[in-house]
């Protein structure tokens, strides 16, 4: 469509404003990560890589990073298995209460994190599980399962059933059919569900606060604690900068995957 000149300019200004609104804070944090002064004065007087070194040598930071990676990986692993199984069960079989189960599976993501956190904490105490990485993983899995479940069931609903029937017809039992036909066609849904679930777990703080033990501080918890100590602000900036870089990768991957999928011919 051909736009008139003023409209063109208006659109350019509007989109620039939106981009600035979204990315200016990120740029500010990124610049502060290289600020040589411990004080956050604008503009930075001098640039340095010193804070990166300090962050690397800070055992609390490295432990937080390791904890976050572990929690994210385990929660995602649990979510991939349980979410996929639940989606297949709800999609494939008709049983009494199927609609209810489908609803109950999705509900946790709508529940306020505070409620989930309190409920889990009370339960862990009642059952007698020590707070630690395990409890954090369980807490994160409650919403990660939903993400995977939603991705997988959306894909299952879009896929025709007949190739699975063809597989059974050609002698494939349930496991063979899943491994050779259903699984490969769920691949990208599992990938994007997994990435999203990892990202959610990685920056989760509310449920984590309720479910973590003394030795299991995650990155968001570390930042939240450190931000109240002016001394550690530069390290927080460095962490934030690294997190920005790290989170771009899965998003970029996810868009590439879904892009390739749309481009590929669909059968």
């Amino acid at each position: 469509m051909v736009e008139s000149r003023p409209v063109k300019w208006l659109l350019r200004i509007a989109s620039s404003a939106v981009l600035a609104f979204l990315y200016l804070p990120l740029i500010v944090v990124a610049i502060y990560a290289f600020n040589s002064s411990r004080l956050q004065a604008w503009p930075p007087a001098d640039l340095t890589l010193h804070w990166f070194e300090e962050a690397l040598n800070n055992p609390a930071v490295t432990r937080a990073v390791v904890n976050s990676l572990l929690a994210g990986s385990f929660a995602t692993g649990v979510a991939l298995v349980l979410g996929t199984l639940a989606a297949i069960a709800v999609h494939r079989y008709s049983f009494f209460g199927r609609q209810t189960i489908s609803f109950l599976l999705v509900l946790p993501i709508a529940l306020p994190g505070v409620v989930t956190g309190v409920a889990l904490q009370r339960t862990f105490i009642t059952v007698g599980i020590d707070f630690g990485l395990l409890t954090v993983v369980i807490g994160h899995a409650t919403f990660c399962v939903v993400v995977v479940y939603n991705n997988v069931i959306a894909r299952l609903r879009r896929l025709p059933r007949s190739p699975e029937e063809a597989s059974a017809d050609l002698g494939g039992d349930m496991w063979t059919t899943f491994r050779r036909v259903t699984g490969p066609r769920l691949g990208t849904a599992l990938m994007s569900g997994g990435l999203l679930s990892f990202a959610l777990s990685f920056d989760e703080i509310i449920v984590t606060l309720f479910t973590s033990g003394p030795g299991t501080q995650t990155i968001p918890m570390f930042i939240f604690a450190a931000i109240q100590r002016p001394n550690e602000l530069p390290v927080v900036n460095v962490l934030a900068f690294v997190l920005i870089l790290v989170s771009i990768i899965p998003v970029w991957l996810a868009t590439r995957i879904s892009g390739a999928e749309t481009a590929g011919a669909r059968l």
């Binding site: 007949s162 063809a166 059974a168 017809d169 494939g172």
Partner: peptide, 16 residues
């Protein structure tokens, strides 16, 4: 998968 019959499906149902 335990019946000695094979099917040609209306939508072909090839594995894409």
């Amino acid at each position: 998968f335990e019946r000695d019959v094979n099917t040609v499906f209306q939508d072909y149902a090839l594995f894409p």
